[in-house]
């Protein structure tokens, strides 16, 4: 059986309505295509998560320190790492970055940017109202951009889901065998539901990892589901769950013994901040 068009999967991963009924039917019964879609979707989620992520250039002094440290260890290397301004100018003669010039802030954009992805959105910068742009307006923006940069941040939208909290999950002192384990949990609010995306880095062990919400009384708990082979999973929280009470995220290692109870072996755990519980409540 031939698989679906890879472009269909790519568009679908972006959240577009794409493909024919046949594509959908194939997807429904083809595990390979579904896995591929899942992987692409994860890439999209990652890219969209907080909006465009700008890379930051280190200050020029960092290269100078590296050059100095390494240069003191071997003359051959040191010659190739001449960091001074005069040497830089002399080396390439034009002020453009030449073979001897260190990169740094004084050098014009090292990546020619037709699109400036998120100049400085900062932490709150992404909370932007959804802009409904007509194609004409956008085209105008792009024409301006042809000569320089387009501030795509202005064209961008908040992600389909809003991240209410992102916490680290840490090992517990009482389980020394999992001290190297770590994880993250992101609480997201979509239009329809609250979701918890959990990812854990933990040693492969017999059994499987299961995610729980623990109640403040220390005994109540809600099972959210199991992590996949890559120790990740996204779970829809029960509608109406009180996250002020069920505020702790716990990942257990469960043996394959058929029990639905928590195994009492917690690999990592973390607490959702109270502010997230507030934000999670229906407005």
């Amino acid at each position: 059986m031939s698989h679906t068009d890879p472009e269909f999967l790519a568009l679908k991963a972006l959240g577009e309505q794409a493909g024919t009924a046949q594509d959908a039917a194939h997807l429904a019964q083809c595990a390979d295509c579904r896995l591929e879609l899942e992987r692409l979707t994860r890439v999209v989620e990652l890219a969209r998560r907080d909006g465009p992520t700008p890379l930051e250039e280190p200050p020029a002094s960092v290269w100078e320190r590296i050059a100095a440290t390494v240069g003191s260890e071997g003359a051959g290397v040191a010659r190739a790492l001449v960091p001074s301004d005069s040497a830089r100018g002399a080396a390439n003669g034009s002020g453009r970055r030449g073979p001897l010039a260190p990169p740094g802030r004084d050098v014009p954009a090292r990546r020619p940017t037709g699109v400036r992805v998120g100049n400085s959105p900062g932490r709150g910068g992404w909370r932007r109202r959804r802009l409904r742009l007509v194609a004409a307006g956008l085209a105008a923006g792009l024409i301006i951009g042809a000569g320089g940069t387009v501030a795509v941040t202005q064209l961008t939208r908040p992600p389909a889901s809003q991240v209410l909290a992102e916490i680290e999950l840490r090992p517990l002192a009482q389980f020394p065998q999992y001290q190297s384990a770590a994880g993250t949990a992101a609480l997201r609010k979509t239009q329809a539901a609250l979701q918890l995306a959990v990812s854990v880095s933990a040693p492969p062990r017999p059994g499987f990892y299961e995610v729980w919400l623990l109640g403040a009384n220390g005994t109540s708990m809600i099972s959210l589901g199991d992590l996949n082979a890559e120790h990740a999973g996204t779970f829809t929280l029960p509608t109406g769950v009180d996250l002020r009470f069920y505020s702790r995220v716990d990942v257990s290692l469960q043996p394959f013994n058929g029990s639905t109870q928590h195994s009492s072996t917690s690999v990592v755990r973390g607490s959702l901040p109270a502010t997230a519980a507030g934000a999670a409540e229906p407005s």
Partner: peptide
């Protein structure tokens, strides 16, 4: 440019 719009704008392909 295409990827940036696909990820961060409301536009369909």
């Amino acid at each position: 440019l295409v990827m940036t719009l696909a990820f961060y704008s409301d536009l369909t392909h």
